[in-house]
């Protein structure tokens, strides 16, 4: 019985870590694409300094607010009952995951533009070059930093970083002791993407974003459905393992929808 409970706990922690890792990976890839574009055009020092400054601000915010989070009685000890937390957090993750999955299907079917890293890199670099024509006349900051590159690096890291923090909080609120695996997943994603960026030192075109979003969308939708169900008092067959069949089922629907959407124009014209 103890072994069974331990196994369930380990499964829950493992799935939380993987889900937080995958969700954070997408955000980190987006931030790194912009930093690489800015860095290659306006200089690495300023772009990386902007990114590092944003990470420091985020780390400071988390250090200040993090302990408060662990003191919030999420498990029905006092005011907020666990099912309510599961229902709200699950609904948010479900909305988040379903939105990604829907977009990934539409992209794969060619109905909306594929957000390709190579194209994103080229677009950002061109925009920066155009802006550079006027910004070139602007004086550099006190530490010889390029203000444009610093600001771009700071803003994108702050935006995507805030999303990662939100992802970690959402996954961490799913149960007791889940904040740590969720945080570890996010940190691992940051390290993986930083290593990738360092190794490639150019656009992350080799990371197929839409494939990643397909996978992440299905996994998050599965998590969301599971937690919403738990919050409603649904007794899932196989308990936490139900997340696996839910993810597979969402992926199955998505994969069936792609060719259906591709075929749609023909059907409509007929």
């Amino acid at each position: 019985m103890v072994l069974g409970l331990g196994h369930l706990e380990a499964t829950r922690m493992g799935t939380t870590l993987v889900a937080a890792f995958l969700a954070s990976l997408v955000e980190c890839v987006e931030a790194l694409t912009v930093i690489l574009a800015v860095g290659s055009v306006r200089g690495w020092r300023s772009a990386l300094a902007g990114g590092a400054a944003a990470l420091l601000v985020l780390a400071g915010t988390i250090a200040a607010l993090g302990p408060l989070l662990t003191r919030i009685p999420l498990h029905g000890l006092t005011r907020i009952p666990l099912p309510m937390v599961q229902l709200v957090v699950g609904a948010m993750i479900l909305l988040f995951g379903m939105r990604w999955l829907r977009k990934a299907i539409l992209r794969a079917a060619g109905l909306i533009a594929l957000h390709d890293e190579e194209a994103s890199f080229v677009r950002t670099a061109e925009a920066i070059r155009e802006a550079g024509a006027s910004a070139a006349h602007h004086p550099k900051g006190a530490h010889g930093l390029d203000k444009f590159a610093f600001s771009a690096g700071f803003n994108i890291t702050m935006l995507e970083g805030t999303e990662v923090v939100f992802i970690v909080i959402a996954f961490g609120a799913g149960g007791a002791g889940l904040l740590l695996p969720a945080s570890l997943g996010a940190v691992a994603a940051l390290l993986v993407v930083a290593a990738l960026g360092f190794a490639l030192h150019r656009p992350l075109a080799r990371v197929p974003e839409n494939t990643l979003k397909f996978l992440v969308g299905a996994v998050l939708s599965a998590f969301g459905t599971f937690w919403v169900g738990e919050g409603m008092g649904i007794a899932w067959q196989g308990r936490d393992l139900a997340i696996l069949w839910l993810a597979a089922a969402y992926m199955g629907i998505a994969l069936c929808l792609v060719p259906l959407c591709r075929a749609h124009p023909v059907t409509m014209e007929e």
């Binding site: 379903m98 829907r102 539409l106 109905l111 459905t225 409603m232 067959q237 139900a242 089922a249 629907i253």
Partner: peptide
């Protein structure tokens, strides 16, 4: 209950994607 919850969400996804395609 679990499969029914999923079925409804799956149906919403299918309808939304097909409507967008149409």
């Amino acid at each position: 209950a679990g499969p029914a919850l999923f079925a409804g969400l799956g149906a919403i996804l299918i309808e939304s994607v097909l409507r967008f395609a149409r």
